[in-house]
């Protein structure tokens, strides 16, 4: 992480295309060493062969065109959320909204989403990594989306007063948990919600995502199980009106920086620390671990960069300062290009977005290195415009790509992180432009 001086990295082309039944199970290179204060659960890709949601009845996985369109939708809703939560970078967070018409939300038979506020959550179409959690006493197990770009955890709940989408797990049934309770409207936690309401003294939550998906229901508390750990009194949304692109998941685990996130709610237990590893392929397993960084989670060889916390809640901002291609820093990008726009780390966005000046320099340097190696260009695909035809090749040599952060921490991308594969004849640089330098 201190930065590689290598200028090339090898990639086996077939590793980009795992078969539908080729789950390679856990591929962790380091032993899992449980610590007294850490809890670790597996992360898998929602549509990959290791996913508990995959299978004959899960429906067709989305096409690359659909994935990239959903990714653009998420980025646009993220940009909208960032601009509405700050008055320019470093500005004050926006005022919280109360849910209009809130008292009738859970009981309403209307399918309209007009009674929940717009864009209190991101578009979720590409938050494609899922983790197992337990909820209630005795605990019921659920597979939920893992999202560092939002705060409030929620699951679909019985009796589904208005509507529920189809999910793989059984619905959470509050009546069967001895530790379940609704949060009262007077509880200060109710005011922590981005959008809240009140019904007969019970606090209501509402989240509408950028793609039109939404969840509305009771804000509740119960015991959350993460691996072997139990977090008592964990506050979450018990969704009674849920619709949208959540696939077969039971809900969402919010890992943002805001007050309703698990990060903040379990602060006393884990000290506000967590880490994860996303696997190189959708056919492998990564992990999500809460608690102080242990050697098993690579804490010992991690390079850190300041978490910039003055730019509003929820998101994890960092200071990107430069990009290296083939071991050489791209001199055409003034550092102000990054500092003017800001940069955040998101588990739910697929393709890294850069200010246009930075993207143009990166794609140009990458293309020059690929041309020097004689690789054949391919047509652009959706938001990806720097693509290659690897037909007939079993291994390719890519220029290294590194992201350099404030303080010198460096992300020397794994080969699997440099490109995004549509097909063997269309493998593209896995970055896209924000369109300009100010967006």
């Amino acid at each position: 992480a201190a930065g590689s001086s290598a200028d090339r990295v090898l990639l086996r082309v077939d590793s980009l295309f795992p078969g539908p039944s080729s789950c390679t199970s856990t591929q962790e290179r380091k032993p899992i060493t449980a610590t007294s204060s850490a809890a670790r659960v597996p992360i898998v890709h929602r549509h990959g062969p290791c996913s508990p949601l995959a299978g004959a009845h899960a429906g067709k996985p989305p096409s690359h065109a659909e994935i990239l369109a959903a990714d653009q939708n998420r980025v646009e809703s993220l940009h909208h959320r960032v601009s509405s939560t700050t008055t320019g970078l470093g500005g004050k967070p926006r005022t919280k909204k109360k849910t209009p018409g809130h008292s009738s939300v859970p009981a309403s038979s209307s399918s309209s989403s007009s009674s929940v506020p717009a864009s209190s959550g991101l578009s979720l179409g590409t938050a494609n990594y899922v983790v197992p959690i337990g909820l209630g006493t005795p605990p019921s197990r659920f597979t939920v989306v893992f999202d560092t770009g939002s705060d409030t955890t929620w699951v679909q709940c019985r009796p589904c007063v208005v509507s529920c989408y189809k999910q793989k797990d059984r619905l959470f049934d509050p009546a069967k948990s001895s530790t379940y309770a609704n949060v009262s409207c007077a509880d200060p936690a109710c005011a922590d919600l981005d959008a809240s309401g009140c019904n007969a003294g019970h606090c209501l939550y509402g989240i509408q995502y950028g793609d039109g998906s939404y969840t509305v229901g009771f804000f509740a508390k119960d015991t959350l199980a993460v691996a072997q750990d139990a977090i008592k009194g964990f506050k979450f949304g018990c969704g009674e009106k849920n619709r949208g692109l959540f696939g077969q998941t039971a809900g969402l685990l919010g890992l943002g920086r805001g007050p309703t996130s698990i990060t903040v709610q379990a602060y006393e237990k884990y000290g506000g620390s967590f880490s994860y590893c996303l696997p190189a392929s959708s056919a492998a397993t990564g992990y999500l671990e809460f608690g102080p960084l242990s050697p098993s989670s690579s804490g010992s060889n991690a390079k850190t960069t300041p978490m910039l916390t003055d730019k509003g809640p929820t998101f994890y901002y960092v200071g990107l300062t430069g990009i290296r291609v083939g071991g050489k820093q791209l001199g055409a990008i003034p550092e102000s290009v990054f500092s003017n726009s800001g940069t955040l780390v998101d588990s739910g966005t697929v393709i890294t977005r850069l200010p246009d000046t930075a993207y143009a320099a990166l794609s140009s340097a990458f293309a020059a290195a690929m041309a020097a190696s004689g690789y054949k260009k391919a047509a652009a695909y959706s938001i990806l415009d720097t693509c290659y035809d690897f037909t007939g090749l079993s291994q390719v040599s890519l220029p290294t790509v590194s992201l350099v952060f404030q303080g010198g921490a460096c992300l020397d991308l794994d080969a699997s992180g440099i490109v995004y594969a549509i097909s063997q004849s269309q493998v593209c640089l896995g970055f896209a432009s924000n369109g300009d330098d100010e967006s």
């Binding site: 690579s298 978490m307 990054f338 998101d346 977005r353 850069l354 930075a358």
Partner: peptide
């Protein structure tokens, strides 16, 4: 705003510590 997406995070241990206000990257974590 720029966004570091999940494709680029693959195989790295991505570490968040709200109390120390740091984000970390560790290669070869999975």
């Amino acid at each position: 705003v720029g966004i570091v997406g999940n494709t680029q995070q693959r195989t790295y241990g991505v570490l968040y510590d709200v109390s120390k206000k740091v984000v970390g990257f560790a290669p070869g974590a999975c």
